[in-house]
Structure formats: C-alpha cells, structure tokens
Design a protein around this nucleic acid. Structure first.
Lengths: 342, 342
DNA sequence: AACGCCTGATCAATCGTTTGCGCAAATGGC
DNA sequence: GCCATTTGCGCAAACGATTGATCAGGCGTT
C-alpha cells in the first residue's frame, strides 16, 4: 500500500486533510461535542485511510490514563481447563474494545517483578484473577486491590468484585446422576481442603447424598488436590476402604484422569467396576479412556461476566459479587458411568 | 505502606529528594553519562523507595518509542503442547526486562482487529509467531513483517528471522527406537501435508527406514493432521492396509492420543499389537493409556531462542535463521512401545 | 448599522519520561 | 591568583493524543 516510511501520526493526517490536529482527533474519536462540517469529516476520514493511520497507543494511554488492556491471570495458562474461561474473557474484552493480556499466576505473587510491571507501571487497567489454591486471600487483595481494579473468579476476596459458578449445583448433578444409576457408595475425589471451589463441590455432593437418604461417610471424601496425581492418590485411598465405593465424583477433569489411571492400575474396569464422573468439562475429557462423563460448568460465560464486571469496576462502579446462573451446569454423558455391577 | 493516594510520579520523587525531575530520571534509569554525586543518588533512590515509585509505562513508551512488550502468538494458547514454548519465551522476555503478551493466532489474521491493535497501534515491540498450518507464508510475512519485528518458529517466512528445532532428527530417533525393538513395518501418522514440521518429521522417519535398509512404502505414510481425530483417521487408514504395520510414529502427542484411541477401538492392545511413539512431548503424554513413549523436542529452548532473536531484531539486528541444537531430541521411554508380537 | 449568536475550526496546555544542552560552582594547573 | 577544565545539576523541548478555551466569520435581529 502507500506506506510512507514510519508510522502515520495525527499530524500527518491533519496535514493531508488540510485541517488542524485537534480537528482530526475529534473526527476520528467521534467526539459528539465536536462541531465540524460533514465535508471536513469526510476529508479527514479519507486522509486517515490513505495514510493508514492508527492511534499511537502510548500517546493515547498517557493522555487518557487508561490503556484498554486487561490482564487475565490464571494458575496455568496452558491447561485446557482454562480454555473456555480464556475465550470468554477475551471475547468480552474485544467486544469492549480492549486487549487481553494473559499471564501466569505463578509469576504474579504480590511484590513480584511481573506484578509490578503489570499493575505498578500502569500497563493494565485491571485484572481478572483466579488465585491459585493456597494463596492467602487477604494478602493478595491488599497488594493488588489497592493498586488496580480487580475481579476474582471462583473465590471472594475482601474489597474486590468476584464471579463464581454454581459449583455445588454441578457436583450435585454429578452425584445425582450416579445415584440415578443405582450407586449408593459414592466417593468424592476433591481438590485441596483450602480450595473454595472444592469445598462448594463437596457440599453439592453431600447435598445429593442427603437428598437421596444416603448416610454420610467421611471416609468417602478425600482432599488431595486438582491435579492428575492427586486424583490417583484419592482413588488409591478410596479403593483401600474396607467397603469400596462403586463410583467416584471427581472434582475436576484432571483429577478424574488420575482416577481413571488408578482404577486401571488396580485392575478395575470403568464403568464396569467403577463409575467416574467429573465436575468441569474440557477438551481432554472426550479423549480419555473411557471418555469421561462430566458436568459442564458455564466457564465461557464466567469469563465474559468477569470481564464485564471488571469493566464496570474500572469505570468506577461498586464492588459486585456475581454468580453465573445461566446456562446451568449440564450433564454430558460419555462412557465412564454406568450401573453398579451386581 | 505509605500510599499517598494515586500513583507516584517522577516529580513526586524529585520533590521529596529535593532535586530536579531529570536528575531522578537519570539516577533511576542508571544513565551512565549522568554526572551526579553518590550522595544525591542515595537520596533519590531512598525517596523513590519511600513513595513507591514505578515508572509510568505510557510516558516512557511514548518518549522511547518502545514498549518492552513482545507478543507470542500460537495457534492455541490453551494447548499443553505449547506449554514449554510459552515458558521459554516468557522466561527470556523477563530476563530481558520485557513483558510477554499471549495471543491466539486465530485472532491474528492479517488485517484483523486484533492485529491492528497489537502492531498497528504500537502496543508491542515485536512478535514471536507460530503460524497456523495453512496460513499463506507470503501474505503473513508482508502484513506483519513490514510493520513490526517478527520471528517465526517452526517455519521460515521471507524477510523474517526464524527458529526451528531438529524435527527430522527427532522423528528419526523415534523411528530408530521402533526398529531397534524389531519392528519392520512402521506407519507414520503425520500432520497436514502443508505443514513444514510434518514434512521434516516425515523426512526423519524416512531416513531412519532407509538407514536400516527397510524398503519405502508410500501407503504407510499418512497426512491427516496434528489433532486427535486426525490421529484416529490416520490409524484407521493404516490398520486397513492389507499388511498392517506393527508400530506407528505419530507426528505429535495429540495425534498420538488419537492413534491410541483408534487402536483401542479396533481391539488392538498397545504395545502388544501395536507400538506407538510420538514426536514431541507434553504433560498429557504421561497420562494417556498406556503412557506414551515420546521424543522430546527442545521447545523451552526454542522459546528462549526465539525471544532472544526477536530482541536482536528489535534492536535493528539482521535477519537470522536459527536451529536449536542443544539439547538434542531425547527419547523418553514410557509404556506404549515394545517388541512386535511373534 | 450595531449587536449577539451560532457554526466551524484552531490554539495551547496537558499526561509522565527522557535527554541534549547550558550554567554555576568546584577543582586543577601554572 | 587566573584560566581551563571538570563536576553536579537544572531547563526545556520533545514523544503523540486529547480537550477546554478561544477566535473569526456569517447570519438573523432590532
């Protein structure tokens, strides 16, 4: 095209259109209070088009004191569990004219270099944060919440907006599915005891059992964690029980993969000897053996909601605590669940 | 701490230290040509510390015409295949005082909104790009290469620096492993025919066969793609051959997962009836059933190398074409390979 | 004909940093 | 004790975009 060397500035457009810089700025930014003739507007737009003008990010950010960048910080970017969430946040960001910056939360411990660069230097307008299990909520809230608008997901922090999904309902649906299949002894392979999502999911599991009149058995509930080896450990623990469970609710897909692995290692067929259902859904769930029955959480919508909430906070809105109720958690039946044997 | 309301600026530090703004700037940026007494430096640093000064990103970027942000663009951020690469790029970026921005390449088609926002508005100094299979190299190079420094990985583009890994060697190692186990009929489940990495890996596979004196059989080579269903399709094709292969080299882990799935679907045991080895390694490979034998590529180093190369290009360096030779691809033996039956 | 008012557009200050240049005071040489 | 040099630091002009204030005409009133 007609690239004239470096990058076109406002003044280049102005010169080409034969008007002042401010006129160009007003036309291009669609300033409603601007009084400019339609003829001038046309000329300006044409000139901008011709020189390939794009507003300089730094200049604009400096003047406006906002970058239109939001950061999404999750424990592990490259985990397929976060795929839907990521898309949700990005789609909402784009819809609002923002750019999403993805960062790893391991780099984001308060006071860390990455943290300072992002919020301290004003590179982002705000942050959507999924805290890692085990981070101290208070400390985190203080260090970031005071310096940049913050929305947490899956977890409430004092002083910051938050968005959650119906974890308890999802776990309840998962458990009810097993009960409907005829299971009575159902184990729970949970996240870490300190994890809010794990607690809510455990609560939903307990609700379902209670509703079905099944007696509570503390031995059937484990708190190993959300990763694959944790799922294995949970399963080993559950299968060592004098009375084995005939089914397991895994608190997330990764843990469920571990459950499958351990069952296999102990020579148990799934779902013949053991049914497995996972809360959460992800790409990988369809590709395990057997494919995992899951209860899908509205994580895409969680992302969109969180980004929208952040936008409101950035604009000075009040702290909100939201829960994504639509769509509801939905059971996706694959091949890892069936009626108990015998 | 002592937050004095909004954000501390250079002038705040200057006032507190009793010096001029420029003096502060020079001290804090470590300007070697600055002539300032050690006493003054001390005072400035102390003041900066006390008010919690962080340089304003926009102000600095505007003046310096550089952002110290690089973008990493891959086909799918949330694919575990990219985990090592991502870490490599980020580590190198951090080591160089930069921030890494992660973006999805689906959003990055030339001329797209995301694209303009990133390179057109000067939000990033440069880009590390892994093109999606099927993108037109020439078009891409033109549209981004002319506007921002670019380093591509896995693929060469005209006019831009690039970094690759020894794909052929890796595939060769994988194939040699199977040959050493006694296999003679070995299939190849490749990526798309248009994919440069797939071609190099196929070449390495062919080399190994040739070196072992095994006759070439075009029917044993498939070009379905890198995803799980592609691996399935490849396998179905290979297993439909009049003379079935006893082993398959999968061009990447995702495809290998599909290979395992299809083998299982057809009632074949792995590695009893079919051995499977994948080029590439990833988190997921250890958690398939059976766990996948892989040849690990130096992807972390690829990331670091690419980021370093990009830094040189940003600084006006010449176009380079690099290959990461250290560490070499290494065979990771798990449980999906064994001697052929009978 | 003098007045005020609306239209169309420009002027100039501002955001926070960096950096070439200038200017005092201190230092050194003889 | 005088000049040249060095040391130590501040002034002010950028960088590109935004925006309140301002200004020159043209028009309709009285």
């Amino acid at each position: 095209m007609g690239d004239t060397g470096p990058v076109a500035k406002l003044s280049d457009v102005a010169a080409r259109a034969g008007v002042s810089v401010s006129a160009v700025s007003r036309v291009l930014s669609g300033d409603p209070s601007a009084r400019l003739s339609e003829a001038t507007r046309q000329r300006v737009r044409k000139a901008a088009e011709e020189v390939g003008y794009h507003p300089n990010f730094a200049g604009r950010a400096l003047k406006l004191a906002r970058t239109d960048v939001i950061a999404l910080i999750v424990p592990d970017v490259t985990n397929s569990l976060f795929a839907d969430l990521t898309r949700g946040v990005e789609d909402e960001a784009v819809a609002r004219g923002c750019v999403m910056l993805l960062a790893r939360s391991e780099d984001m411990h308060p006071g860390g270099a990455m943290f300072d660069r992002l919020v301290g230097e004003g590179r982002v307008d705000g942050i959507v944060l999924q805290p890692r299990d085990g981070t101290d909520p208070g400390e985190l809230a203080q260090s970031v919440g005071e310096r940049a608008p913050l929305v947490t997901i899956h977890q409430r922090l004092p002083g910051a907006s938050s968005v959650v999904v119906p974890d308890a309902l999802a776990a309840r649906r998962a458990t009810e599915h097993l009960i409907a299949l005829g299971h009575r002894r159902i184990g729970f392979a949970g996240g870490l005891a300190g994890s809010p999502t794990a607690q809510r999911r455990a609560a939903g599991y307990a609700e379902a059992l209670a509703a079905a009149g099944i007696a509570r058995d503390a031995g059937l509930v484990t708190w190993r964690g959300y990763r694959e080896p944790d799922g294995r450990a949970s399963t080993a623990e559950l299968l060592a029980l004098p009375q084995r469970p005939t089914a397991i609710v895994a608190a997330n897909v990764n843990a469920a993969v571990g459950v499958l692995a351990q069952a296999r290692a102990q020579g148990l067929g799934v779902p013949g000897d053991l049914s497995v259902v996972a809360v959460h859904d992800a790409w990988t769930a369809a590709h395990t053996w057997p494919p995992l029955t899951c209860v899908k959480l509205p994580l895409y919508e969680l992302g969109r909601t969180a980004a929208a909430a952040l936008a409101r906070v950035v604009d000075g809105g009040p702290v909100e605590h939201l829960s994504v109720e639509d769509p509801e958690p939905v059971l996706i039946t694959r091949e890892s669940t069936g009626a108990p044997r015998g």
